[in-house]
Design a binder for these strands. Structure first.
Lengths: 229, 229
DNA sequence: CTAGTATTCAATTGAATTATTGATTACTCC
DNA sequence: GGAGTAATCAATAATTCAATTGAATACTAG
C-alpha cells in the first residue's frame, strides 16, 4: 500500500518534470520565446536563436516531446508553433519569477543598457497611457511575419533590417515608441539608438505582445496599413 | 554590436535557465511541493520525499542556488522555507500546465484512483459550496505543523498516522470531506478509504492550501480548536 | 529522373547531473 | 571536554544531456 502510493507520486512528479526539463535549457527557452511571437520554420528559428539547424531541430523535438509545441509539415518546410497559449503565459511567468528572484538579471540588463548609451528609465504606465491615447508614433521593429501575427493597434511595422532606409516614413515631430519581443529583445534598443542618431525623440517600450495580452490589452492581427501619415 | 546583443541575450536566458534547471528534477519538485505547505527541516523533508538525507540536502542546495528557497539555522537544525509565495504559485502553474498538456497525468491518476476502490467523481464547485456552508465535517489529514501553518477555516486536524485511533472524534452522521496537500497527495485518498471502511460517508477534496489561496479562498493559521462536536 | 533544399537522424564527444557512500563540520546536552 | 546528532561535504560511478558532424530522408522544381 505504502509503495503503490509512492510509485504513483513518483510517476506524477516525473511527468511534471517533463515540462521542467523542457525549459531547463537557454536555447529552448529562446526558441519558446520566439515561438510566442508566432509560428516559424526550423531554419528561421535556428537563425534567430543563433544555433546550428540540426541543433535547433533537436531542441524543438525535445519541446515537442514535452507537448509544448506542435508541428505541421507543408512541402519542404516544417512549421513549429506553440501547442497552447498557456505555454507562452507559463514562459512569461518563469521570466517574472526569475526577475523577482535573481538580482543578476536586473544587474546584467542595467549594464547592457548603460553600455548602449545610458537609457533613462521611462515609467511604463505613463508610456502605455501615451501609446493608448495615440499621441505618439508606435513602431514595431520585429520581422513582418511577427507583426502580422499580432501587434499593438495603430503600430507601424518597420522591421529592424529596413529601419535605416525607411525612417523617412515616420513623422519627424512626434515622439516614437519602439517595441519588439519583450524586455530582453535587443531590436527595439537598437532602433531607439538609431532613431535618436537621426534626430528623433524615441523611447523603448519593454513589453511584447505576450505581455500585452497577459495584461488585458488588445492586440491586432493582419497586415500593416497601406500608408503612414 | 551584433555580438554584444547576443551575449546579453545569452546571459539573460542562462539566468532564466537557473530556475528551469531547479525545477527539472522530480525530487526537487516534490521538495518544493512540501515546502509550499510550510517550512521544514532537512530530515523531515528527506523522509517525506522518500530520499536519503544527503541527497535531499544536495537538492535543497540546488534550490537555494536558484533562490527559490531560503535557510535559517537554529541550533542543530536547518530550516528550509520557500523564498517567496510566488514560488509556490509558479510550481502550481507548472502543475496546471502539465495537467493541461500531458494526457499521461490524467491517465495515471485515474488508474491509481481506480486501484484504490474506484472513486466517483465529485464536482469540485459543489463540494466547495458544501464546505463553505459548513454542512460537512472538513478533515485535514496532514501533519500537525502543516495544519498550523495554514488550513481551511473550520477544518479538524487529525494527522493520517493518528486517524484510526482518533476516528471517534468525528461526528458519525455528517459527511466528511478530507483534504491534504493537493491533487497528488495520497493521504486524503487513504483517509477516505479508511473512513468508509468504518462506516463514514466520506469524499476527498483534491485541493491543497496553495490552490485555495490561488483561488482567493481564505486560509487560517494556528492551532486546532480544543474540542470537536 | 535529377538537382537542390529543409529537416531529421545517428554517432561521437565532452560536460553536467544524479544517487550513494563515508567522512566531516557545527552544534547541544550532559 | 566528550557523546550524540543534523546537516553538509567530497569523491565516485552511472546516467543523461548538449553541440557537432556528416549522412539520410522527403519533398519541390525543372
Amino acid at each position: 500500500m505504502k509503495t503503490t502510493g509512492r510509485r504513483f507520486k513518483t510517476a506524477i512528479f516525473e511527468q511534471f518534470t517533463r515540462i521542467g526539463k523542457a525549459i531547463a535549457s537557454p536555447v529552448r527557452l529562446e526558441l519558446l520565446d520566439l515561438l510566442a511571437q508566432g509560428p516559424r520554420h526550423v531554419e528561421a528559428l535556428a537563425a534567430a536563436a543563433n544555433v546550428a539547424i540540426a541543433n535547433a531541430s533537436q531542441h524543438l523535438q525535445v519541446l515537442r516531446a514535452a507537448r509544448l509545441v506542435e508541428t505541421e509539415k507543408s512541402g519542404l518546410y516544417v512549421t513549429y508553433r506553440l501547442a497552447d497559449p498557456a505555454v507562452a503565459e507559463f514562459v512569461r511567468q518563469l521570466r517574472l519569477l526569475a526577475e523577482r528572484r535573481l538580482a543578476e538579471i536586473e544587474r546584467t540588463t542595467r549594464q547592457f543598457l548603460e553600455s548602449r548609451g545610458g537609457f533613462e528609465a521611462v515609467d511604463r504606465q505613463e508610456l502605455l497611457q501615451r501609446v493608448k491615447s495615440g499621441e505618439v508614433t508606435v513602431l514595431d521593429v520585429r520581422p513582418t511575419e511577427e507583426f502580422e501575427e499580432a501587434h499593438l493597434p495603430g503600430a507601424i511595422s518597420i522591421p529592424m533590417a529596413e529601419l535605416e532606409a525607411r525612417m523617412a516614413e515616420l513623422p519627424k515631430n512626434r515622439e516614437v515608441v519602439a517595441y519588439c519581443r519583450g524586455p530582453y529583445c535587443v531590436l527595439a534598443i537598437e532602433a531607439v539608438q538609431r532613431l535618436r542618431a537621426r534626430g528623433f525623440r524615441a523611447v523603448r517600450l519593454d513589453w511584447g505582445v505576450v505581455d500585452w495580452r497577459a495584461n488585458g490589452l488588445s492586440v491586432k492581427r493582419g497586415k500593416a496599413a497601406a500608408s503612414v501619415g
